[in-house]
Design a protein around this nucleic acid. Structure first.
Lengths: 111, 111
DNA sequence: TATTAAAAGTTACTTTATGTAACTAAGTTT
DNA sequence: AAACTTAGTTACATAAAGTAACTTTTAATA
């Protein structure tokens, strides 16, 4: 027994955005098109999960994958219009976080 | 090796919102304070996970839990100011979903 | 020419999160 | 006393995410 009263479009949007890492990947690509390794380094995601997410997001039409047959080959991910249209959502979350989130300073200063 | 360049507040906000069900629970409570069983029925979440989420969200200060010692006892969950301040985010997602999400009509009409 | 180096993934395996269904506890109605 | 309701909890099964080592391709280096 699993069923809701919710609007299916809204439900799907929420499901999309609550996939772990998806929002951060989009946020990262708002700045510029990015390569696999750049995204990995920027948000601290494993290769395996990033690979999965990029496939999902491409499938959903949020991003596109371009191959530049340079040497060595460059593969670049960038937002589609649909992906970019999430910018307002991400900016809202950004603003909200500044107003409402407390970060517990886990001071990690060795030596 | 897991570390990012991101603003910790933003990162925490995203982590919060990408917990499965959290956004839907808040969305549901935007309408009115709700009881456990109402939330369950409205969004189709299991008792176990709803219980976990409500605890997390209370911990984060997004919701509060009120006990009315009526008979039988009524336990009501409602948004705090912090929780309610997520309304803009949720409304943005709602609007975005209407503009950009396609729902594949899996017609389920028996008989 | 063999060796070492990226970049972009993939694979096998472990850990964590989520889902399911049955069960509990307190008070209530029959 | 037996059955019902609400608000959960428990034990167990499945799915998603994390880790680290490995593969492939092309190139620059020794």
């Amino acid at each position: 027994m699993k069923q809701s009263n919710l609007c299916p479009k809204f439900e799907k949007a929420v499901t999309l955005l609550s996939q772990r890492w998806t929002a951060l990947v989009i946020y990262q690509m708002l700045e510029a098109p990015q390569r696999f390794g750049e995204i990995q380094a920027a948000i601290g995601i494993s290769g395996k999960v990033l690979s999965d997410r990029l496939k999902d997001m491409e499938q959903e039409g949020l991003i596109k994958r371009d191959v530049y047959p340079e040497t060595p080959v460059v593969i670049e991910y960038s937002l589609t219009e649909k992906g970019r249209s999430l910018e307002t959502v991400l900016r809202d979350i950004e603003n909200w976080s500044q107003d409402w989130i407390e970060v517990d300073q886990q001071s990690n200063t060795g030596s």
